[in-house]
């Protein structure tokens, strides 16, 4: 292991990791927004929109992110929709993540017993109040584990961004391997940086999940 090499190229990896995290966070934030809207459309059975959301979810979940990115980055400009690689990465991640988040929220909503909404209604609440004070708080906490798993999944998926020439961690590692043949060092840095990004989220996730599973409300 050549430590001088590692120290020399550390800043390159830092920049790349920041790009990965930046695109990842914006993309995940958008995924949550998209997922929430889609889950709401499904929950309220909004006509027409509901069918569109179902088709979107199926397409998004049954195709790989890499191909979605290729389509957005290389194919859409041919019909006049061109965008920067960064924007493309963000939109691609949101397109993929939106459906996963939607499924997490939807199953959370479905897991709340119907009697909960009914007892809220029988106390004279409006539907919106029942949803806001009774159904949503429970649905959100039920979907937390799936939600955290999705965040980890989406952060991992950002590794394909180098395919649309974003200078992320993978791009940097491949570049250094190609230029200097320092395979071990490059791969070592790659693994370390992904661990720095992913390990805290994973640990936080299992902590939250354990709390929800064993304690529930009120302890």
């Amino acid at each position: 292991m050549n430590w001088d090499f590692i120290l020399k190229y550390l800043p390159l990896y830092e920049t790349a990791a920041l790009l990965t995290v930046k695109i990842g966070l914006i993309g995940i934030a958008l995924s949550i927004a998209v997922g929430f809207l889609c889950a709401a459309v499904l929950y309220f059975k909004v006509p027409v929109l509901r069918q569109i959301v179902i088709v979107y979810i199926e397409v998004s979940r049954n195709t790989p992110l890499l191909i979605q990115l290729f389509f957005i980055y290389y194919a859409l400009p041919k019909v006049g929709i061109g965008m920067s690689a960064q924007l493309c990465g963000i939109i691609g991640l949101a397109f993929l993540g939106g459906s996963y988040m939607a499924e997490a929220f939807r199953s959370g909503l479905e897991a709340v017993e119907p009697i909960q909404a009914e007892s809220a209604l029988s106390l004279g609440m409006q539907r919106s109040q029942a949803l806001r004070y009774v159904v949503l708080p429970q649905a959100v906490s039920i979907s937390v584990p799936a939600f955290v798993a999705n965040i980890i999944f989406l952060l991992k998926e950002t590794s394909v961004f180098s395919a649309i020439s974003l200078m992320d961690l993978m791009f940097t590692a491949k570049d250094l391997i190609g230029q200097y043949y320092k395979t071990t060092e490059s791969l070592f840095l790659l693994v370390v940086f992904y661990l720095i990004i992913l390990l805290p989220v994973s640990i936080l996730g299992s902590y939250v999940e354990r709390r929800l599973r064993y304690a529930g409300f009120g302890s």
Partner: peptide, 11 residues
């Protein structure tokens, strides 16, 4: 109205 069960809000 009071139901058979499960109608307190657990959160």
């Amino acid at each position: 109205m009071v139901f058979q069960s499960y109608d307190l809000f657990p959160h």
